[in-house]
Design a protein around this nucleic acid. Structure first.
Lengths: 256, 256
DNA sequence: GAACGGCACTTGTCCAAACAAGTTCACCAA
DNA sequence: TTGGTGAACTTGTTTGGACAAGTGCCGTTC
């Protein structure tokens, strides 16, 4: 009965519905393996046509949260691992979505000319200035990840007016109207260097899980390039894969 | 003009269309960044209604191959990284899809009672037998990955009649009618143990990229549990992420 | 030349209807 | 009791129509 008022939100109905359904599943209101209400019932409950309900369900289906076939009622597949853009891009958002407390200690923030390597990755000319931020991130006070971010000057300059110890850079930039729209994440493993080792409290050379990220604006420009190194016993990445749906994740080889 | 005959296939039209569109993109007929024909044109070309065309496009959209907005014509996004089930589940399939030559050397194949740890992961009673296979996998002759697979007895027994040095276990099992339908992959980092170090030719403790996999049958039973360790400079994992589409990949915390 | 307004076109959203194809279940007959 | 038949219901597919909202372009006006 909640959110049955003609919806203050101006989002399209099918989107509101799919969010509602997602909640019902993750809250356990609709249990895994159990069939969910028939399309006709959902139509009646929300006062919309069948097309709209199907549009909402299609969204869940494409994520694998719901399966079903002709004649058979749709059933909740599994509480699917899937994360929104913000949750996946921002350590703080991620922590909050888990009910954990994110923490950060800024080790360094600096403006430097980009080295050849970095410039190549970010599509800059060598020597163009970038803003580098080095932070130690924690979950519930426990050191978890070393974050090395490089921002292009236009974006990074705004950071000097921001207390990087206070929270999410992603959130701050978004609130300032920076339009981060796409991320490309490369996941591999790396041995801890001296800095990593000291910050995370491990031996130099210890295996760390690295997420190398490029963040793009809507127009395709690269805004950020980061190198996050996780303690592998504190966080890792999970993906599910079925014969029916292609996985967005890809395993790539590195040398020709 | 190909496949314009009323379609011998009994697949639904929207599915045929989305396959056709996928081909047009991967063949370069529709080029990256270029707008594709308007919905009205596509309707006329294929003699179907707009709803059907939109249904076909929605499929590409959900994979990120196509973007677009109100008023704007839909444009071909980047050739999206996405892999079929077989390519992601099988090292051999993966290598072939890249035009590389997969190799394997079987170090050990054995039947053992499952330890408490493994039994828990696979949903077996401790002591139930599992078939363990330890192989060194290579790309174009270069050692790349150490593969430790554990199969439940029912599936694994078939392997004693298979030359595990000859190629893909996944392919062999599929051809025997074993219905692998779902995989759950956990990605983290781990230091090389003595075996890894010797096989891959690195120092013990060197950082390796680990893919821990559970493979499920259609009925939900766990058929296989594997631990694959890659040289991080030879292979890694990539995922893309946009504000519009949720990522199937998830970053998970490990301790409460 | 630059700014503005309006028109044609395109996609997004929503509805209504009809049929096909599969599932479930009650009922009846052997 | 068992087996089969069929009706009722469910989801999948496809069509058609209508309106809203955004883009791009052309021509007018300043």
């Amino acid at each position: 009965m909640l959110k049955y008022v003609p919806s203050i939100s101006d989002e399209p109905i099918h989107q509101q519905l799919s969010e509602l359904f997602r909640e019902k599943i993750s809250s356990g209101d609709w249990k895994e393996g159990r069939p969910l209400p028939s399309e006709a019932e959902l139509c009646a409950q929300h006062g919309v046509s069948r097309g709209t309900v199907r549009q909402a369900l299609a969204s869940l289906r494409s994520e694998g949260m719901v399966t079903g076939g002709r004649g058979k009622p749709p059933v909740v597949a599994r509480p699917v691992p899937s994360q929104s853009f913000a949750t996946f891009m921002s350590f703080s958002e991620w922590a909050h979505s888990l009910g954990r407390e994110p923490g950060q200690r800024t080790v360094e923030i600096a403006r430097r000319p980009a080295g050849e390597d970095l410039a190549g990755k970010m599509g800059l000319r060598p020597g163009e200035p970038v803003i580098q931020v080095l932070r130690l991130r924690s979950l519930d006070g426990k050191p978890t990840m070393v974050e090395r971010s490089n921002f292009i000057a236009e974006v990074g300059n705004a950071l000097f007016g921001f207390d990087t110890d206070s929270g999410s850079i992603f959130g701050y930039l978004t609130s300032r109207g920076v339009d981060l729209t796409r991320g490309r994440h490369v996941i591999d493993a790396v041995g801890a260097d001296a800095t990593d080792a000291e910050l995370l409290g491990v031996e130099p050379g210890a295996a760390l899980l690295r997420e190398h990220r490029l963040t793009y604006a809507a127009d395709g420009r690269i805004l950020e390039c980061s190198d996050d190194r996780y303690l592998p016993h504190l966080a890792n990445f999970v993906i599910e894969n079925t014969r029916a749906s292609r996985a967005a994740l890809v395993r790539v080889p590195l040398v020709a």
